[in-house]
């Protein structure tokens, strides 16, 4: 029973990872061309343009949709990288000698104390990241929170009898990690990845709103920033509606998926974690 559900988990993880990679490559490496600027500027919604047009005569709905693959790819990429970092760090801190492990966790506490969005703004204001650097920046700031969860889980897995037996029979730390500890954590890792994506998308759109990202890379936050100075006009609501709906919808969807995945992860690990 356990083997089958674990097999399913790994297969599911594989599918998701494949989808992520495909999305990342497509979204970041082959950006869609700019939406055609053929219509009259600042039109209200009509049969041709369901959410109206912006100042350049571009369809608002198309623009919001065009930002989707890039945004999703960015979120996925950043959260996956962050997850890899936090997994490695968390497992290492558990398998390392106790003193070193405690120091490592303390270091995480120090990093957690820093307000991540502010630091992101600080760094972004000087680097003005394009999509690639933005992924690295958000990953670099998003990995400390996950470490705690990963470390707690890893501790549990390492204490398991099967792992202990493997160690007794000569398994080295890397072997243990790869074959015993990490595979069992996969459901939780997937849930964390999805939640991480949601968080990253929120941060990325916040940075884009403030104007700290490269505006040639279409983002919903950037579209909202464009609409802000023109809010006094009657057509402004349509410029705001498209990116706002897209952004909130995505965050909502990811949130719901994340919650579902979390319960599934807890179930597959055997029981609830209420007595944490």
């Amino acid at each position: 029973m356990e083997t089958r559900s674990r097999g399913l988990a790994v297969a599911g993880a594989g599918v998701i990872i494949a989808a992520m990679i495909a999305g990342m490559v497509w979204g970041l490496a082959a950006p869609l061309p700019d939406v055609p600027m053929a219509a009259a500027p600042l039109l209200p919604p009509g049969p041709d343009h369901w959410l109206g047009t912006n100042q350049l005569g571009q369809d608002n709905l198309l623009r919001a949709l065009a930002a989707t693959p890039g945004t999703l790819a960015l979120g996925l990429a950043a959260s996956v990288i962050a997850l890899v970092l936090s997994t490695v760090y968390g497992v290492l801190s558990v398998t390392a000698p106790p003193v070193l492990g405690r120091v490592m966790m303390r270091a995480i506490d120090v990093l957690l104390a820093l307000p991540s969005l502010l630091v992101a703004m600080l760094v972004a204001s000087y680097v003005r990241p394009g999509p690639g650097v933005l992924v690295l920046l958000l990953a670099g700031l998003g990995w400390p929170p996950d470490v705690r969860v990963v470390a707690a889980l890893a501790r549990r897995e390492v204490a398991r009898d099967s792992t202990r037996f493997a160690r007794v029979f000569g398994g080295g730390p890397v072997y243990l990690m790869v074959h015993h500890v990490v595979p069992r954590m996969v459901p939780v890792l997937i849930a964390l990845a999805v939640q991480g994506t949601r968080q990253t998308i929120i941060h990325a759109s916040a940075l884009a709103f403030v104007g700290l990202t490269d505006p040639s890379f279409p983002t919903w936050g950037g579209m909202l920033a464009e609409a802000l100075p023109r809010l006094h006009e009657p057509t402004a609501i349509w410029q705001v509606a498209a990116p706002a709906l897209a952004l909130c919808g995505t965050i909502l969807a990811l949130g719901l998926a994340g919650t579902r995945l979390e319960s599934w992860a807890h179930r597959s690990l055997g029981g609830s974690d209420d007595r944490g």
Binding site: A206, F209, L224, L228
Partner: peptide
């Protein structure tokens, strides 16, 4: 809904 969207 992110805070800046709520604000807008």
């Amino acid at each position: 809904i992110p805070p800046f969207v709520k604000a807008i």
